[in-house]
Every structure is written in C-alpha cells, then in structure tokens.
Design a protein around this nucleic acid. Structure first.
Lengths: 336, 336
DNA sequence: TTGAAAGCGTTACCAC
DNA sequence: GTGGTAACGCTTTCAA
C-alpha cells in the first residue's frame, strides 16, 4: 500500500494509454481490445489501484450511500431495525450513514441538512418532528424517502411499519379470548413526549387500538398509566385479586412489560395467576426472562429489509411505491 | 428548494463577481470588502445555496466523516458505545458511517476496504479478525485508527477499553471479601468463537483475570462453563447448598448473568442466599430486573468519547497518542 | 479501438 | 480586494 494513492492517470501513463482507455478497462465498458484491457487490469492490480470514491461520486452524481436518521440505540427494537437496514443495504451494494436524533427535533433537522448536503441517494427516517414541521423540508430535499415507525408526510412519503392500532385492538381481543375482564394499559413517559411536541404517532396508534379494543369488547372505560408508579401497579393487582376480576396489563412496549413483571415478582404477586402481562415488539431479551412474557412479534427484520427495498425502488425510479404494512403475530408466552 | 442545486458559480454570476470571491465570502476567508461579502452572503441565502459536500471533500481531501466498524447491535454494550461515539463525533463536527461486521472476518475486510476507498478521516474498529490477519492491512491504510474492545496492532494501533483482566481479578477479590469460597465462571459460546478463529481478546482477558484471581486468593482450580447448560447450573447450586460452601457465579457479560438468574428463580433457588451472581458491563436492562444484579460499570460513555477523541487527536496530527485504560467500578446490587 | 477534453462543484494559488 | 484558473480524480462524450 503506497502512501500516495495511485490514480487512473498514473495507470494511463504507465500503460502508455489514455485515461479514457483505462476507465474502459476498469469499468468493463466495452469498446476496448481484449489485450489492452488485460494489460491495463494487470497493471492496475500491480499498482494496487483503489478508485477514489469521492471523485467517482462527484462525477456520477451518485453516492451509493443511504442516510438513516434513527432515534437512539437504547431500545432493542431500534437496534434490530437498524441492523437489518444496514444488512439489506449492504446486500445491494449500498452503505449506511447513521445519525441518531435522540428524540430531539433540532438534532433531527441537523441530520436532514447533513444528508441533503451529502447528497445521499436516499433517506430512511424515524421521524421525531411532526407533520407540519417536517414534511415540506423532507419533500424539498427531492431525494427518495422512506419513513419508519412514526408516520409523516400525509401520504406523500412512503411509510412502513406494522399496523400498531390494529395489533392493539387484536391484543385486547386476544386477552378477552383468554378470559380477561379488565385490561390496563401502560405507556409510561408518553405525556412528557407529548409536551415536547415530538412525533408520537406510533405510540398514539397503539393507545388508540387499545381504546378501540375495549369498546369493541365492551370492557368499559380505559385504564391507563402514563408514568411508572410501583404503588399503583400493586394496587391494580390487589384490586384484581380482591374483586376476583381477571385482569391483565397491556404494555406499549416490552421494556415496560419487563419492569412490570419484575415489580410483581418482587412483591410475590403471581403472573399470570394473579395478573396477566403482555408486551409489544418481542425483543430478544424476553427469551432470557421467565416467565416468558407474551408479546407481539413485529417481524422487525422484515420491516428493515422492506424499508431499504422501498427506498431502492425509488432510487431506481420505479413508480407506484406505496406504504407497506408488515405482518405480525402474537408470541405465546407464560404471562397470559 | 430548487430541484437544480445552486452552485458557487451561479452565485458568482448573479453577483457579478468571480467564484473565488464568492468562496472568500462563504468561508469567511479575509481579503474581501465587507460590503461585497455581505452582498454575496445575502444572495447566497436568497438562492438557498447549499455547498456540495462531495466536491468540497474532493478539493480539500478531507471528509469530516469517521468510519466505525462495529460488531453488531445485539449487545446493549455495543449499542451504548456506538451511541456515544456518534454523539462525541457530532459534537466535534464529524459524522459517523457505521458498518457492522457481525463477527464475520470477511465482512470486516469489506468494511475496511470500503472506508479506505471512501477516504474517511479516521477509523474506529472493534476488531473481529486477529492480529496477524489485520494489523498490516490496517496500518497500510495510513489513516488514523483506534481499536476498541478487542486489542490488535501490537501497540501500533491505539487501543481503548477497560482493563478486563484486572477487573476480573478484582471481581474475584470482591467476592472473596464478601465471603465466597467457590467461584464459577461463565463464558458461554467462547469455544465456538475460538474455533471460528475470530478475535476474542477481550473475552480471554476476562477469563485470565478470573484464573489469576482464583490463584491469588487460593480458591483452587477454575470452574468454567463454556456453554449454556441448565442442568449444570442447577447442579452447581445444589452442590453449594449441600456442602455449605458459599458459591457465586461470575459471568463474562451481563446477558449471561440475566439468564442464569432467571434459571435459578424459575427453579426456586434463592439469589444471593443460595448462590451469588455477578455480571459484567452493567447494561441498562439490569435496572429493570430484580434482584438487581451486581455488575461492573465500565463507563461505556467514557470509552466511546475517548475513542473518538483519540482518533481526533491523530487526525489533528497530535503526537504521543497512547492506549487508554478507562476506569471502572463495581455496582452494588442484590445478587452477592 | 482509442485519445482528448469537457464536465462534476469546490478550493487554493497566483496575478493584477 | 478581486479575478482567473489550475487542481482534486473520475466519468462521459465526441472525434478520430
């Protein structure tokens, strides 16, 4: 490996041909004598030629890089999603530049600007900002876009996710079928997010689904806990036991379910005998904990793969890219 | 936002000045009349000028991007590390391109090649390949490098991590001080990794530390479980109980500790009364599980920050960059 | 089948 | 202070 990178020009000089010819050989672009080509290729290899990607991108106006604006890596759900996007991208010869918005709108705007300037070939975004703040900016970029998780762009930006609302409705049904008469809903922290005026589309959908499920199965008014509250959790269990009312806790995401389960275990409340628990996302950690928490398997890898492929379709100028709703299934566990 | 991007040339024409002058204004490079500058800046803003990053990089020979070759995002430890690298990079005006090697040596080489071609300003690598395979290639890149987690480069590539070996030695001491007489060690999966001939430096260091600790405190021969084995775990606990020998399990990383704890809880073996457990890394999940597992807090954020700063120092041509050993502490929990 | 030259958008340097 | 122009390394087009 030489310190000074070898250029097409260097190869051209060494071979006594023009740069154009070297290019033809390197990118096997026909219109070149087989003999010359072989010779050039051999020399290039000897000189350990490595194309300068920057220059190539500048000339071609294409970067083979996609930008991903994720939220953070604290939630295993996001990690798996990002892992699968990266894997799929790489499979198709693309690379991923990752910026984490950390649920901060300013940070998200910076990231968008960064990717615009970088001329990435496409952008996958987990929106944090809301409709009115973000849509025009994103569409103004005039590059292929896909939104994941939170929706945005009033139908103009292809979106992919599971149908959280339907899932939650069906989760309620699932629980009703198992004989539950009272269902609590947990989405700790949601109000704080709402106050920060960030996009909570996905969480709201989940909540709506719960509300609708209750109504469909005539389970009365919603019981929602929006902040972690150990006392309250214990009260719920106690109440269920006293009134002999079969009760379960439906959680907006798995980490809530894990925490809830732990609180009950610590206080010797039996799950699922005394109270049922159900999570959402089916993160891998659930396999390490017993009782195995029932959850919703969102086919995260499929979401990631499809997200990239929807982007790729746009990059390749395919028409008719529409939203994608990914399949799901309930995972049987031991907490319902 | 126009579809056709505005170039310096366009501004120059509109302002009736040369490209050089526009550049002086844009990058406030002195030697320009305040008046002209203001006018140019105003026009640039009006035209919504966005510099073309590719062109800029090509001209300057600097990308303001660092490459990170991570292993995967399955382990929260890696996630936090990567999060903190990204945050620190951004704080200093750098961006992160992330490739995951997935513990695959071929994949790692592809990533290295990618970053070389991309002319990133520096590379942070979590090595998967071993010394002999990787060192020359990396040094041949002739770009700033930092290795994290697994060590590599015989002292020629700055490395950062906690001192796993010392920590494990002290973990043994910690346990001895708490009255434990027998200490088992768990590093499930290690043999399979060894067979694949991938770099297991960090895991080996931990194991060494355990061995040394045993010797220092005269605890007899090592007892190691290299694959998950529920039966065996139960035997260990049973044995400890029967022989009234205060026993603990030292785990190579937290996920093993979590799984072990669950096995015991499921089988009604009391932790820490019947057997003690200690993890390593102190991932956030531990806060959601009770009893709170004792672990080693490795100051992951500090590792990430320093990793970037060590790279930055090299980018800025500072001399004397040496390895960095990050501080740690034992987190008190309820499992010892 | 090949060469020559004009881009791609910036930056940097040398004249004036 | 400012203009002009040659880099940066590659691709692409037109002529020969």
């Amino acid at each position: 490996m030489s310190i000074i990178a070898v250029r097409i020009k260097d190869i051209a000089i060494k071979c006594g041909v023009s740069e154009g010819t070297v290019d033809r050989a390197l990118n096997n672009r026909g219109g070149i004598k087989e003999e010359t080509k072989k010779m050039i290729l051999k020399t290039a290899k000897e000189m350990n030629y490595q194309p300068n990607h920057l220059a190539r991108c500048l000339a071609k106006g294409k970067t083979n890089t996609i930008g991903v604006i994720g939220i953070n890596l604290k939630n295993t759900f996001f990690c798996m999603l990002i892992e699968s996007i990266e894997a799929e991208a790489r499979k198709h010869g693309y690379f991923m530049e990752l910026i984490l918005s950390k649920n901060d709108k300013k940070s998200e705007l910076e990231a968008i600007n960064h990717f615009a300037v970088r001329k990435v070939d496409g952008l996958i975004i987990f929106p944090v900002g809301r409709e009115e703040d973000l849509t025009d900016i994103l569409l103004g970029l005039d590059i292929p876009l896909v939104s994941v998780y939170n929706r945005i762009g009033c139908g103009k930006i292809p979106h992919i996710d599971v149908d959280c609302r339907k899932i939650m409705r069906n989760a309620v049904k699932h629980m009703v079928n198992k004989g539950y008469e009272s269902i609590w809903y947990m989405d700790w922290g949601i109000e704080r997010q709402r106050e920060k005026k960030i996009n909570i589309f996905s969480m709201e959908q989940r909540r709506c689904g719960y509300d609708e499920g209750l109504e469909m199965y005539d389970l009365g008014e919603p019981h929602v806990m929006t902040e972690y509250d150990e006392e309250k959790l214990l009260d719920i269990a106690k109440d269920a036991k006293e009134k002999h009312k079969k009760t379960a806790i439906l959680c907006a995401y798995d980490n809530i379910a894990i925490k809830t389960l732990e609180i009950y275990r610590k206080n010797e409340i039996k799950v699922p005998e005394d109270i049922g628990i159900m999570g959402f996302d089916n993160i891998e950690m659930l396999d390490r904990i017993s009782p195995r928490i029932c959850s919703v398997d969102c086919k995260i890898r499929t979401i990631g793969q499809n997200a990239f492929n929807m982007l790729l379709a746009q990059i390749n100028n395919e028409e008719n890219i529409h939203d994608c709703v990914v399949d799901y299934s309930f995972t049987e566990g031991e907490t319902l």
